[in-house]
């Protein structure tokens, strides 16, 4: 296969992740948001698998499998159950309007490209593009955590950030499998802990809107 094709497919998959991150920004229903998140995980798995093939690094297939099983299937299912049990699946949430958020997101993508491309001028083009996209995904995830009020969408923002980190790590010739697995596990644990906390919050305050917590704490928002 020609190197151009390898590059183009990697570019396509990583670009798809950024696109999906932008898609997440304007989902105002949680069910839809979870589905988009699952889609991003699928894109991540595909991208990692493609890197494994392109770099001939078989251990990355494991990473891809972990991403597929945990992030694209297990976590979304669990989140979906959680949302149903919390009774949030019909809710529409808006914190910051979609338009400005999208504009900010586009700005972030531009910023990460502006930063990453000159910094990594010497490394191979595949890694360059991947790193730039990965930084965009991280920043978009963070943006999502900042703009959302619902704790569940903040979790999703957090995990989408982590997707970006994995993309960056695999782009840079992969990270050790042990690190990979432990990161996956820590995210899983974080998910469980946050889930438990969420239910407790819900029990205590009858909502998972984090602003309610601030009001209860007497914050000067």
């Amino acid at each position: 296969m020609s190197p151009h094709l390898v590059f183009d497919i990697a570019h396509l998959l990583a670009g798809a992740m950024v696109l999906i991150s932008l898609m997440m920004l304007y989902q105002d229903r949680l069910t839809a948001l979870i589905k988009v998140f699952a889609l991003q995980a699928v894109a991540l798995a595909a991208s990692v698998a493609w890197q494994a093939y392109a770099h001939d690094a078989p251990h990355l297939y494991v990473t891809a499998a972990i991403a597929l099983i945990f992030k694209a299937i297990a976590l979304p299912l669990a989140l979906q159950r959680m949302v149903t049990r919390l009774g949030l699946h019909r809710q529409v949430e808006t914190a910051v309007a979609t338009g400005p958020t999208m504009l900010a997101g586009l700005g972030l993508v531009g910023l990460s490209l502006v930063i990453m491309l000159p910094v990594t001028a010497t490394s191979d083009p595949l890694a360059r593009e991947d790193l730039a996209f990965a930084l965009s995904v991280v920043l978009l995830g963070l943006l999502m955590m900042v703009t959302r009020r619902n704790a569940v969408s903040q979790i999703i923002g957090f995990m989408s950030m982590e997707n970006g980190l994995i993309l960056a790590a695999t782009g840079a010739r992969g990270m050790p499998l042990v690190v990979e697995i432990s990161v996956a596990f820590s995210v899983l644990i974080a998910f469980i802990v946050i889930g438990v906390v969420l239910f407790h919050i819900r029990e205590r305050f009858d909502t998972v809107d984090v602003d309610a917590l601030d009001r209860f704490r007497g914050g000067r928002s």
């Binding site: 914190a95 963070l142 943006l143 955590m145 900042v146 009020r149 984090v210 602003d211 917590l213 601030d214 914050g219 928002s221």
Partner: peptide, 10 residues
């Protein structure tokens, strides 16, 4: 507030 903290980080 929590979001303000996140916002500061961001």
């Amino acid at each position: 507030t929590i979001r303000q903290y996140l916002g500061i980080v961001f």
